[in-house]
Computed example of a mutant assay.
Amino acid sequence: MKGIQVSSFGESHVLNYVEMDEPVLGDNDLCIRLKATGINPVETYIRSGNYAALPSLPYTPGSDGAGVIEKIGKNVQGFHIGERVYVSTLTGHGTGTYAQKIVCDVGSVYHLPEEMSFEEGAAIGSSGFTAIQALHQKARIQPGEIVLIHGASGGVGSLALQLAKLCGSKVIATAGSEQGLAMLLALGADHVLNHREPDYLQNLSFLTEGKGVDVVIEMLANRNLQNDLDVMAKEGRIVIVGNRGDIEINPRLAMNKEIQITGMLLANMTPEQKGQNAHRLNAALTHGVKPIVEQIFSLAEAKLAHEMVIKQRGSLGKIVLTID
């Protein structure tokens, strides 16, 4: 089979499109013939070698994908050959989703709704589970609360917006371009703000009727965390999903308002939480929540896709690779 193999850490040129051995099926596994794979920013950090936990070389990147079941382990129930599925796994058996096939355990495979394309399915996994983990397990979102989503036009943010609205929240969402702001309004945001404009948060007091924000889903804490503290309501909750450096904050604001600041990492999600979140995500998908696919490349163009991910740009959803 064809796939992407990384034999040394470095820039995007280390993503080599090669012939690979097919993965071996275990008794509790499924073999998926992948039709598309989703690209996550963390995969660019791992590829470059700038990440805390690095895989053994050589490796195939990717944890998200969608396709058709080709083989089923003898202990697996609830699936059948030919069924459309999406996968979200951190542990392929020697191979990730940047390949024509992947073998993964049954707990990492989910039914793909018929109305969704394989490209959309490939954009669900990590982004969807991150958004749900942030909103439910970490922020403990409640109906009627005001939620600020920083960087809502990306893969995680666009799903978090839809999920928060589904919970009955009022959502204030930020993006860095007019196209991004228009997309957020189309997804149901109550108010949108351009985070590239100076003092873009100055109207939050008016938008929240002087109360402040109950929940912040933060994609770039090293830039925004102090500003988040400034606009929080009493007993508000900030969930840090993304960060790219250091920041100095005034903890007095967290003390005065009794604000909770919580970090999260998808890899820390327990099997119990993953099971709960899978049910939440399935229910959301059946009620119209859909990932946004910004651009599609072929598997052989993985280098170009990675270069696009790391550019300083206003994201408009997820970048996906199609697989022949």
Rank of each mutant, 00 (worst) to 15 (best):
G3L: 07
G3Y: 11
E11P: 10
S12L: 07
V14H: 10
V14M: 11
V18P: 06
E19A: 12
D29N: 08
L30C: 01
R33S: 10
R33V: 02
R33T: 03
K35W: 01
T37P: 00
S48W: 10
N50Q: 13
Y51H: 12
Y51C: 03
A53H: 12
P55H: 08
S56A: 07
G62V: 00
D64R: 01
G65W: 03
A66S: 13
G67N: 12
K74D: 13
T89K: 02
T89R: 00
G92Q: 05
T97M: 06
Y98V: 03
Y98K: 12
V106G: 05
V106C: 10
V109F: 02
V109E: 12
H111N: 15
P113T: 02
F118L: 06
E119C: 02
I124F: 05
T130P: 10
A131G: 03
A131P: 11
K138G: 03
I141S: 04
P143M: 06
G144K: 11
I149V: 07
I149P: 12
S158E: 11
L159T: 03
L163F: 08
A164C: 05
K165Y: 14
K165A: 12
G168S: 09
V171D: 07
S177I: 07
Q179W: 09
Q179C: 11
G180H: 13
L181H: 10
G188T: 05
R196P: 08
L207H: 13
T208L: 08
G210I: 06
K211W: 14
V215G: 08
V216T: 10
A221L: 09
R223Q: 15
N224E: 15
L229H: 11
G236L: 13
R244G: 11
R244C: 09
I247H: 07
P251K: 08
L253Y: 15
L253V: 04
A254P: 14
N256V: 12
G263C: 04
L266Q: 03
T270M: 00
N277W: 00
A278Y: 04
H279W: 13
R280I: 03
H287E: 12
E301N: 06
A305G: 06
A305W: 03
A305I: 01
M308L: 15
I310L: 04
I310F: 01
S315V: 08
K318Q: 05
